[in-house]
Amino acid sequence: MPGATGHVVRRTSEVVELALTRTFDATAADVWASLTDPGRTAGWLGPWRGEPGVGRTVELRMSFEEGDAWSTVHIEACEPEKRLRVIVSDDPQEDDWVLEARLEEHAGQTELTFVHALADAAVAESSGPGWEYYLDMLVASRAGVPLPDWDDYYPAQVAHYAAEVARVSKG
C-alpha cells in the first residue's frame, strides 16, 4: 500500500491548499511535457483537446474516472517548465477545482509540487487520496511500470487526510 504524502496547508483564514510533491530524475522540460503534452497526459491523467494558452480553455477527459465526461479547463497561468495554474469546471453543482503545478529543477532532478486550492478543507479527505493516485500514475507512466490500483489509495489514505484537516482546523 502506498503511503500518503500530501499535506493540507492553511495560507489564510479563507485559503487552504492541499499540496503533494514528487521528485523525478529528469529535467524540468521533460516533466513539463508529461504535464502538458496530450499524448503523454493520456497515459496517466487523460487526453485533452483544444488550443492551449493563457486565458484559453481546453477540455480534459480524466480517463481513470467513472464515465467519459469532458471537463472544461481554463488556463489561468502558464510559465513553461516552471508553473501551470488551471481552473477545472466539471459539474455546475460543484465547486471548480483550482489546480497548480510548480516545477523546480536542481542538479538533474525536478521536484513537482501539485497544489489543489480548497474552498473547504474537508474536501482533502477525498481528494487527497485521488491526487496521490494520479501523481503515482504519473510516476508509473514515466517509468514504464504497471499503473497503481485505485483500491490501494481509497479508503486507505482517508485517515491521513482527515488528520491533516483536523490539524489545520485547530488553528
Rank of each mutant, 00 (worst) to 15 (best):
E51G: 03
G108I: 11
A107Q: 14
V86Y: 04
T21Q: 13
A42P: 00
A101P: 00
W44S: 01
S126R: 15
A69E: 13
W97M: 13
A42E: 15
V73P: 02
Q109H: 15
E66W: 01
D120K: 09
S127R: 08
D95S: 10
L118A: 05
Y133E: 01
T72F: 02
E76A: 10
F114H: 12
F64N: 05
S63Y: 13
G43F: 05
A124K: 07
S89P: 09
V31A: 04
Q93I: 01
E65S: 07
E65K: 03
A124V: 09
Y133N: 01
H74D: 09
D90Y: 06
G128Y: 04
T36F: 10
R11T: 04
P92I: 05
M62H: 05
G128A: 07
L45W: 13
L60S: 06
R11K: 12
G43Q: 09
G53F: 05
A122V: 12
D91C: 03
A121F: 14
T23N: 03
F24Y: 04
E125P: 02
E65Q: 08
G53C: 11
E79T: 14
R10L: 10
L35S: 03
G46V: 07
P80L: 11
V58E: 04
R61I: 12
T72C: 06
A107W: 14
H74A: 10
L84A: 07
L18S: 03
